[in-house]
Design a protein around this nucleic acid. Structure first.
Lengths: 117, 117
DNA sequence: TGTAGTGTGTAGTATATAGTATACACTAGA
DNA sequence: TCTAGTGTATACTATATACTACACACTACA
């Protein structure tokens, strides 16, 4: 059920192969939570942590923050803020893109970034 | 502070000019909450209601749901679900569009909708 | 002048969120 | 053999979220 927890555990264990500083205790220590709490999170015994904690964890595990938030069922609050400033526009855009293939969205991102328009 | 509450009160009072069924009590009754709670919401005495309640309220007051959620500091959970399915893609797109003028975003929406690409 | 409807004050509640603190049993290395 | 480090079990907590239930004072109108 908790793909978030599984992902964290697997990612941490993978890093640990190369670097002994990726134990539950040490990661927890670096990101400022109790080891017992991280342990429970990894085993899905409790819900995923808060956005702030997830982002610190993602950084420590060298994983993309937005991807990790998504696994936790969340959307970064700064993205939400962008949407909230122009709700009608962004709601329409996002709903329109909902069923578009990845390549279509990628193309859009490029178009906007390259400013070719 | 509570622009949400003010907005609800003003919208409801405006409708009431034409239709006496837009009293606090009757609106509350239709959307399934206590009148005292709606009263407190309108006066900003409590935080905005849940997403579900806001959407029922928006419908009753004939207002856009996404706009009303935005005033409450929320983003519709169905939009969040779209983002969570492809977090990297959508995060990049939205951050890229953050500082673009409205007309640029509108143009993009049209482009996608008209399928001219 | 009653009564139907109005908004609001007060008090309380259930559930979720986001953790902490401590102690325990186990293992690998010096 | 001891000790430093490992993961985890247990018990608890503070704060936020999202309301309900009831009572009260006031007003319009028939």
């Amino acid at each position: 059920m908790s793909s978030f927890g599984e992902f964290v555990r697997e990612t941490r264990e993978a890093l640990r192969q190369q670097d002994s500083r990726y134990s539950v205790r040490q990661v927890a220590g670096r990101i400022g939570i109790q080891p017992s709490y991280l342990s429970k999170v990894e085993r899905g015994e409790v819900a995923p942590p808060s956005e702030e904690t997830i982002l610190r964890l993602a950084e420590d595990l060298k994983v993309d923050g937005d991807a990790m938030l998504a696994l936790a069922g969340k959307v970064s609050s700064d993205l939400q803020a962008v949407i909230r400033k122009r709700p009608l526009l962004f709601a329409e855009l996002i709903r329109e893109l909902k069923d578009m293939p990845d390549r279509a969205v990628v193309r859009l991102v490029r178009e906007v970034r390259d400013g070719s328009w």
